[in-house]
Nucleic acid binder design. Structure first.
Lengths: 241, 241
DNA sequence: GAGCGCTATCTTCCATGCAAGCTGGAATAC
DNA sequence: GTATTCCAGCTTGCATGGAAGATAGCGCTC
């Protein structure tokens, strides 16, 4: 039986820490299923059987089952007893919830970074500015996918610099959940200029070592994005993403 | 030692005859292990084998293994490949992380509640005030455990009223992680009066429909608690809880 | 005594078998 | 035609066994 092992596709693992050499089938199944959900190979609402997925991945049901438990814990699927694995859809209300979580977490993260010792603070600000510049360049080329990727990188870096593993995990989890929504709505977005300007403000407040301003800038940025996105979803009648 | 529990003969002695929808062994194992970790039956640093736990719970290794995966996802244990289940300890740095998560989430929750329509807002404020009164009564009796429980109830209610399932889940997860630390440090706490006054302020801002003030009050409350607790941990040299 | 390697034994990982729950549809009763 | 029953085939839940990795202790070599 052929064992397809998709490796390294978007594995945002630990930062420069351990050389992960583990090759457990459970991890393979988890990564593969997560990737399939992200790129909508498993569309929301699709109900798969563990047997079928196991067959496709060339393993038995056990690792698939255990991976499904992890994915359920991540909020990506629901394991229906004796019925199968249901790929969860995202309702507008979920998007609202996710934004509120991010508003809270990211604001605190920005505040924390601005309160770091000067050297680390400046390094973080430089890093964020660099990523914002990447966004500007993408915008100049009207390259929307690149813009989206750079935007994601900015926000990932923002959380990373706060050096709080729990925050990182929370943000990654909700980002996984909303990945499809972001991809879908990327070309509906309007406030690209505003985003870039707000990113600059966040970096500036961090550079200045002003936690209050950093908190405020980060919150405002996400609040605006939320208030821009939610009506868009509503007007397009997108009930589940 | 060996408590063989024949399975399948219907209801085991679950407390307070609840009509449990359906008891799966995995859920049983998850609940039992989580309870054991909370009350330190499984002390941090203890390395258990799945076989041993399975024997103790009267089931086979499979449900224990799957429950361990969920507990690992919750950050309570670490499954060491081919070595066993390690009960995680809590370092002061973890407490700091947890507080920062809560500061972010709870602040946003308070803000959201204060922005609710008046009827819901007032109901929430009343509820929070009631719970604060319970704390006052406990304090008058110098009943520290009751105080701690009422304090927990206040914060649980605060999150609950924000009606955001993801926030609820996040807070519950970090609360599980820090439960032992809270129990240990309950009798070291000083700012009981301050806590009650701050709770009143949060409720007041919510009642007034002032999101900014609610955010600020909730943040300040947790910031103060954090700044009070962390030095305490350091001074007692508590390296892992 | 110190270091090395072998092995006994512990552990999890994974495949698989069996039982039981759920579902859809055929067969039956009216 | 409509409602009901029943059953075949689907699904997962859980137990169990074999395989392989990890580890500690022993004996051997130097």
């Amino acid at each position: 039986m052929v064992r397809a092992r998709p490796r390294g596709s978007g594995d945002e693992g630990l930062p420069a820490g351990e050389a992960e050499k583990r090759t457990s089938l459970v991890d393979d199944a988890y990564a593969a299923m997560r990737a399939n959900i992200r790129d909508a190979t498993f569309a929301p609402g699709y109900q798969a059987s563990e047997q079928e997925i196991a067959l496709r991945l060339g393993m038995s049901r056990t690792p698939v089952h255990e991976a499904a438990i992890r994915l359920q814990e991540d909020g990506l699927v629901r394991v229906l007893p004796r019925k199968g694995i249901l790929i969860l859809a995202l309702a507008p209300d979920d998007v609202r919830e996710i934004y509120d979580v991010i508003i809270g977490i990211e604001g605190r993260a920005a505040e924390l970074i601005a309160a770091l010792p000067e050297a680390e603070r400046l390094a973080a600000a430089d890093d964020l500015d660099t990523r914002t510049t990447t966004m500007e360049e993408a915008q100049a080329r009207a390259d929307l996918p690149a813009w989206g990727e750079a935007d994601g990188a900015f926000h990932a870096a923002l959380i990373e610099h706060a050096r709080n593993r729990r925050m990182s995990r929370i943000v990654q989890t909700v980002n996984d959940q909303s990945h499809r929504a972001r991809m879908l709505t990327l070309n509906l977005r309007r406030g690209l200029d505003a985003s870039i300007a707000e990113h600059r403000q966040i970096a500036k407040a961090i550079r200045a070592g002003d936690p209050g301003a950093a908190l405020d800038a980060a919150r405002r940025h996400r609040l605006r994005a939320r208030d821009e996105l939610l009506p868009l979803l509503a007007s397009y009648g997108l009930k589940h993403l």
